[in-house]
């Protein structure tokens, strides 16, 4: 095995560009998945099977099919329907949608874990439904599920390289481009592999600290 440090230093500027894009995808994708997941979770509580049934089927479908094919679907099919987004936007939408089907279950568990007494108190105080949700149920439910949501952010981080398949130049995309231009595969791929390990390790440490704070 021959390791070339000069290839590493040549790659580093591209690495920082890729890292920036990866983090962008991660932040935007998390925002989309947190918001959409909450929407799904709330819609699943509407007391009508005309709402819950379609949502249940669609989210089950999205959860059980590969993100990669969903990316291809959005990337190639939307333009046929005359909807054009940039590759990055398409990727963020796809990854956000995919993970919203996971976060939705997290929210559901959180909402179900709110004690019944809280609902009863809200009824006793004659709070309107809207206030019950925004002031009583959701603040307690979301506080409980933050660590679980954080775990999904970490697994989302590990799925961001898939966006390379739809031409987004995130870390792996940059590494592949650099490799193909310079015929040096070992160094860039190893650098980003190590970067992923370090980032997800730091993220899990941060998550543990957050968890400890939320408990108190």
């Amino acid at each position: 095995m021959n390791w070339d440090w000069s290839a590493v230093s040549d790659f580093m500027p591209h690495f920082w560009d890729g890292l920036l894009v990866t983090l962008q995808i991660l932040v935007l994708g998390s925002a989309v998945s947190f918001a959409l997941g909450l929407v799904w979770a709330l819609l699943m509580r509407v007391p009508s099977r005309w709402v819950t049934w379609p949502i249940g089927v669609v989210t089950e479908f999205v959860r059980n099919t590969p993100l990669l094919v969903q990316l291809f679907f959005l990337f190639y099919v939307l333009p046929e329907w005359n909807i054009t987004f940039s590759a990055l936007t398409t990727g963020v939408v796809a990854i956000g949608l995919h993970y919203s089907t996971y976060t939705m279950q997290v929210y559901r568990a959180g909402i179900e874990a709110v004690p019944v007494g809280q609902w009863e108190a809200a009824t006793a105080l004659n709070l309107p439904l809207r206030r019950t949700w925004t002031a009583v149920i959701l603040p307690q439910a979301i506080r409980r599920v933050v660590p679980a949501l954080g775990n999904y952010v970490i697994s989302m981080l590990k799925d961001t390289p898939l966006l390379m398949a739809i031409t987004v130049l995130e870390m792996l995309g940059e590494a592949r481009l650099f490799s193909q231009q310079n015929f040096q595969f070992t160094e860039p791929l190893t650098v980003i592999g190590v970067a992923f390990i370090i980032i997800s390790y730091l993220a899990s440490l941060a998550l543990r600290a957050l968890e400890r704070r939320l408990v108190h």
Partner: peptide, 24 residues
């Protein structure tokens, strides 16, 4: 566990396809 859980499956696939052959 930490190493293989920490990295992305796709990066791992790239690594096995492109780095292992010249290295070994």
């Amino acid at each position: 566990t930490e190493v293989f859980r920490g990295t992305s499956a796709l990066v791992m696939i790239f690594w096995v396809f492109f780095v292992l052959p010249p290295a070994f």
